[in-house]
Simulated scan of single mutants.
Amino acid sequence: MEHDELQFEKSLQSLAAEFSISIHDSSVSYFWRYLSELKKWNRAINLTAIDDDREILVKHFIDSIYGLKVIDINSEIELLDVGAGAGFPALPLKFVRPQLSVELLEPSEKKGAFLRYVVGSLGLQDVTVATAKLEDYAGRGNVQGRFDYIVVRAFKVDQFGVALSTLLKPDGKLVLYRAEKVPRSFELVGLALIKEVEYELPARYGHRVLSVYSKALR
């Protein structure tokens, strides 16, 4: 279902309000321009399997900003999106909280090119793109112990607990966007599960969970 810009803005504000999340009017246009570029680039490279405007709005945009329920953002916060893909959840979070500093880590050069284009065309400040594998990126001295939050959505992190822990500040948090709660058998070395927040996406678009980890006590 195609939306015009006004319809889209009303839908975005209304759906965000259902979760008691306010979006400033100055931020709304970023989502519309992002949607337009996403659909344009998606014809050339596989960014998302979803092509319906409302489904993108709910499953990608609204789901992304729900992370604000567990991410406390102030002007000093640095956030890393691991396996950023098309930019979810970090770019929607940045639109809603402009003071956030974001690094988008994406191993694919093609997806990295899309992210750089979007960041540039939207004029986003304090957003950088790194095209590297997580294990290589975590070995860089300038990023170790740098981030307050790491967010991960649609990227398997089972074997990367140590790498993720290395990138976090001592009191930093890892937030996994998931479809279900973490099974008891799931373990991330160096990290400890501290809470999980469950929610339902609007319009019956599915059940979601935010699984929050902190550095494990030694």
Results as ranks from 00 to 15, higher is better:
residue 112 G to K: 08
residue 218 R to A: 09
residue 211 S to I: 01
residue 119 V to D: 01
residue 207 H to N: 13
residue 68 L to S: 09
residue 1 M to R: 15
residue 30 Y to R: 03
residue 131 T to H: 01
residue 149 Y to I: 04
residue 148 D to C: 00
residue 12 L to I: 10
residue 39 K to T: 07
residue 214 S to I: 12
residue 116 R to I: 04
residue 54 R to K: 14
residue 174 L to V: 08
residue 154 A to L: 00
residue 130 A to S: 15
residue 25 D to Y: 04
residue 173 K to W: 07
residue 101 S to N: 10
residue 5 E to Q: 15
residue 132 A to V: 08
residue 162 V to W: 02
residue 155 F to R: 02
residue 56 I to Y: 11
residue 202 P to V: 05
residue 123 G to N: 09
residue 28 V to K: 13
residue 40 K to G: 01
residue 17 A to F: 12
residue 201 L to D: 09
residue 22 S to K: 14
residue 138 A to V: 05
residue 97 R to I: 00
residue 72 D to T: 14
residue 146 R to Q: 08
residue 92 P to I: 06
residue 36 S to P: 00
residue 191 L to H: 06
residue 167 L to P: 14
residue 98 P to D: 03
residue 189 V to K: 15
residue 61 F to A: 11
residue 186 F to R: 06
residue 66 Y to K: 12
residue 70 V to I: 11
residue 15 L to F: 13
residue 56 I to D: 06
residue 149 Y to N: 00
residue 108 S to V: 06
residue 175 V to F: 12
residue 69 K to F: 04
residue 194 I to M: 12
residue 26 S to M: 01
residue 171 D to K: 13
residue 154 A to E: 00
residue 214 S to A: 15
residue 43 R to A: 13
residue 46 N to M: 01
residue 4 D to T: 13
residue 159 Q to L: 04
residue 35 L to T: 06
residue 212 V to R: 10
residue 197 V to R: 05
residue 202 P to L: 04
residue 175 V to G: 01
residue 210 L to H: 10
residue 112 G to R: 04
residue 38 L to V: 12
residue 108 S to L: 07
residue 102 V to E: 09
residue 117 Y to K: 12
residue 159 Q to S: 10
residue 2 E to V: 14
residue 183 P to C: 01
residue 105 L to S: 10
residue 202 P to E: 08
residue 144 Q to Y: 02
residue 123 G to F: 11
residue 170 P to T: 07
residue 144 Q to I: 12
residue 166 T to K: 14
residue 13 Q to E: 12
residue 122 L to W: 10
